[in-house]
Computed example of a mutant assay.
Amino acid sequence: MHRRSLPIRALPSRSRPAGARPARPIPTRAGLATATIALVLAGCASADGDGDGGLRVAVLAASSQNGYNQAVHEGVQQAIDEHDADVEVQLLDGQFDANTQLSQMQNASTSGEYDGVIVVPHDGPSLAAAFPLANDIPVVTVLNPIGPDINEMEPQVEGVVSTVAVPPAEAAARQAEAVAEHCTGIDPCRVVLLVGQLSSPLDVAREEAYREVLEPEDNIEIVATAEGQYDRDESLTAISNVLQSNQDVDVILSNADQQTSGAQIALENAGIDPSEVYLTGGGGTEDAITAVREGTWQADYVNFPVSMGAAAFEQLHAAMTGDDVETWVDADAVGDIEPYVTKEILDEHPDFTGEWNG
């Protein structure tokens, strides 16, 4: 899995400024309350939490309204519940805005309010401007790295101790390879790319990987690239517009399940049977797993955001308590199933339903 362990020294405890009140934590979609459990830093108390000082962790979501980010937060809470210790978590909303999240990261370091940070970056390259942090607190990043290379999983900036992710180009290429296999014998095979945000480094890497696989194939024609904004309704509108000039679509390749759901509705509204089109998405939502089982979608790239959040907390906990840290956790390996699923694969795992819904 290309992991290596990095010994991290125990960090000194940090107290809040006098008179400061902790902000109210935002609950997850599952209604989980903020956990308070004893994790004690070296020199404060035992690791069993017998002391009276706890830790505060900030979870910086790309968007706290986004189901994927909420699932990561849920995983953090679940991992905390498994530790008999004292940790208070606050979820911060990045509003899908790079400047907002950059400011939140800088404040998390300078305020003295937090002992560690877990972040789902909206823009990993831009967020690198916050590092090195003003105060030495460990940061674990989820879904994509922080730094100039979106496909480099080892920490690229001082202060990031672990990345829980997979190279986005590698994951996108595997999606596109399945499309190319489906297109064998179809000439022309008309493909629509449905990408989240064409200005996002993460999605730029995905679109480039799609094209690197598909464009060399003589029988494949990419007829349109649409922006879905990780939203069903936005994707419904985008694909409806595409279908006005491209009725004979063979494949819709999407990087997000919410977008594929919108594409399915657009096809239905246009009088096209979705099962006649190769529909594939990314995320592994409960709805997507159901759609693949029923044959409405042909495939899905499954993510495990709850398990990823739990893995992120495990690495942050290790950093805060002086244990060895895995600098890269392969996010494709934290779930209970092969991440690239078809109906045949899901039939072999009848109990798998997905870790979240968007």
Rank of each mutant, 00 (worst) to 15 (best):
G116E: 03
A20Q: 13
T100A: 08
L102M: 10
A205F: 09
A318D: 01
A38G: 07
G283H: 01
V325A: 14
E326L: 14
A47E: 01
D324N: 13
Q315Y: 02
N219F: 11
Y301C: 05
E348Q: 15
G196H: 11
P7V: 14
V249K: 00
F313E: 01
P17W: 08
S5W: 14
N144T: 08
Q95Y: 05
I137G: 02
S63I: 07
A61M: 06
E207I: 04
S13T: 13
P125N: 06
A256F: 01
A270S: 15
I272K: 13
G358T: 04
A35Q: 04
Y301D: 01
I265K: 12
V139T: 07
D136Y: 05
L316Q: 08
L39K: 07
D218C: 07
N255Q: 12
L91R: 04
R9A: 15
A23V: 15
H83D: 12
D347S: 15
T34K: 04
I289R: 03
G67Q: 07
S235Y: 13
R4L: 15
G283M: 12
T36I: 14
G75H: 00
V302R: 00
P22K: 14
R9P: 12
C44F: 06
I337T: 08
E338F: 15
V117K: 00
R16F: 15
A180T: 03
L92S: 03
A85R: 08
P168L: 03
E355I: 02
S111T: 10
N255F: 09
D52L: 11
V334G: 03
P138A: 13
D330E: 09
H182A: 12
Y114E: 02
V191G: 05
G147Y: 01
E82C: 05
G283I: 03
S254D: 09
R206K: 12
S245F: 10
L236E: 11
A172K: 02
Q95H: 05
A165V: 00
Q264R: 13
N357H: 14
D52V: 10
N151E: 11
H73I: 12
L6P: 06
A318H: 02
E177S: 06
